[in-house]
């Protein structure tokens, strides 16, 4: 299992566009991706689920990645997060 956290820097939080880009990055891997923010958790491969986290600037997202390609997936998702939120 791989885990990492990301603090949201974008002033709009996890809005539609970045959520879509993160979900697309997650879908490129077979590992299961869960994203938690506060009390809520979401399937990292689902756009609306990610948006429903209601995560805002300054919130911390906790990524948990489990599966055969978890190392590469964690790496890709971390980079994607840096780029888009």
């Amino acid at each position: 299992m791989q885990e990492f956290i990301h603090t949201i820097k974008d002033e709009h939080g996890v809005h539609a566009r970045p959520a879509g880009l993160i979900a697309a990055a997650a879908r490129a891997f077979s590992s299961a991706v869960t994203v938690a923010c506060g009390e809520k958790t979401a399937d990292g491969k689902r756009l609306l689920a990610l948006m429903s986290l209601g995560a805002r600037q300054g919130d911390v997202l906790r990524f948990r990645i489990e599966g055969s390609d978890e190392d590469a997936a964690a790496d890709a998702l971390r980079r994607r997060c840096e780029e888009v939120i």
Partner: peptide, 13 residues
């Protein structure tokens, strides 16, 4: 429009 395309294809929806 890109966002709408993503929502229309979303699995939850």
């Amino acid at each position: 429009f890109a966002v709408h395309a993503m929502i229309a294809a979303d699995e939850d929806f």
